[in-house]
């Protein structure tokens, strides 16, 4: 066979991840956000969120190039209005049934809304969020199927309820496997293989040791969770792969979290910007990527998706996606 001569051989490379944002620049952005939110009685919120995300993404660097957040306040504002509309309709129905003296039906509507709205929000948020994230001009994307995901979510939710919550770890892992497994990085495909039993054991151990050590083990538990999130993730591109690995130790987490708490207390909260930038810097510094994917070859495959309704719903319901 002819030997392909390309810059990307099967050599192992390790792209570096780092966070370059300065606390003072971020502070400036948060201050403007706050000022405008107060002046506009909170209506500036979507634009504030866009400004914040844009800064954080543009300050994160991989292999010498920064990430980019392309979402706009306008998109998120429209999404916000739609999300508000959905929640208002649900609220009105619950209210109506209560007024008609059939609160049982209201409760049913409420439960049904949770069961349907939450997965729809997660789906929409992922579609919007990843489509608006780029690196070197290449879009990320989410290819999950909404109906499939809603079915998966309802099934797992029911199992968790039936087992009085014991199934929670398995549910969490199944959902993450599905969501992360449908994230695209251009022509690269993400992959996550979390195992419910392992995750359950880890959390059980973390929970009891934290109680026994009066909370001190909590930092190590945190490091375990972070490691579990990172180490089970892979990026595939053709027959090539990138593995992710966390190098954050419990001790390092303790240092970070204690320092952050002190910073917040002694600056009376003004240090919040620095707390966030420190945290992101810490996380980025503690993720190692290794493999043989040639980043140059990742191609533009994902479409643009500008509907932020799911993103805003998820934000309003306080579901953390990433």
């Amino acid at each position: 066979m002819e030997q392909q001569y390309s810059p990307s051989g099967p050599v192992a490379i390790a792209p570096s991840l780092s966070f370059k944002g300065s606390g003072s620049s971020y502070f400036g952005i948060l201050i403007v956000n706050m000022l405008l939110s107060v002046v506009t009685l909170g209506f500036y919120y979507p634009w504030a969120r866009a400004a914040r995300l844009r800064f954080l993404y543009a300050s994160t660097e991989m292999e010498g190039s920064r990430f980019a957040w392309n979402g706009t306040g306008k998109e998120m504002f429209i999404g916000f209005l739609k999300a508000l509309g959905i929640l208002l309709v649900i609220g009105a129905m619950v209210g109506l049934f209560a007024w008609m003296k059939v609160p049982f039906l209201g409760l049913l509507v409420y439960l049904a809304a949770i069961v349907f709205v939450v997965p729809v929000a997660i789906h929409g948020a992922n579609r919007y969020h990843w489509s608006r994230t780029t690196w070197r001009g290449i879009r990320f994307g989410y290819r999950g199927n909404r109906n499939e995901f809603v079915k998966l979510f309802i099934r797992e939710m029911l199992l968790t309820i039936v087992t009085l919550g014991f199934y929670g770890s398995w549910m969490f892992m199944k959902i993450r496997n599905y969501v992360v497994g449908n994230i695209r990085f251009g022509s690269g495909v993400f992959f996550y293989e979390g195992d419910g039993w392992e995750y359950f054991k880890m959390n059980l151990k973390g929970y009891f040791l934290t109680i026994i050590t009066l909370g001190i083990y909590g930092f190590w538990w945190q490091a375990d969770i972070f490691r579990y999130n990172i180490d089970h993730m892979r990026l595939l591109h053709g027959d090539k792969v990138f593995n992710f690995r966390s190098t954050a130790s419990g001790g390092a987490f303790a240092g970070l979290l204690i320092l952050n708490a002190l910073l917040l207390i002694f600056t009376l909260g003004i240090g919040y910007a620095w707390v966030q930038t420190n945290t992101i810097k810490f996380l980025m510094d503690n993720v190692e990527i290794e493999g043989n994917i040639a980043l140059d070859e990742l191609a533009q495959t994902e479409e643009e998706y500008k509907n932020a309704t799911g993103e805003d719903l998820a934000d309003m319901l306080d579901l953390s996606i990433i």
Binding site: S24, G28, V32, N33, M34
Partner: peptide, 20 residues
């Protein structure tokens, strides 16, 4: 607007805090 502040640096942020 926030880019105007980034352009001006920490001085601008502090000015805005004082303004608030």
């Amino acid at each position: 607007l926030e880019q105007l502040v980034v352009r001006g640096g920490l001085k601008w942020s502090l000015a805005i805090v004082l303004g608030m």
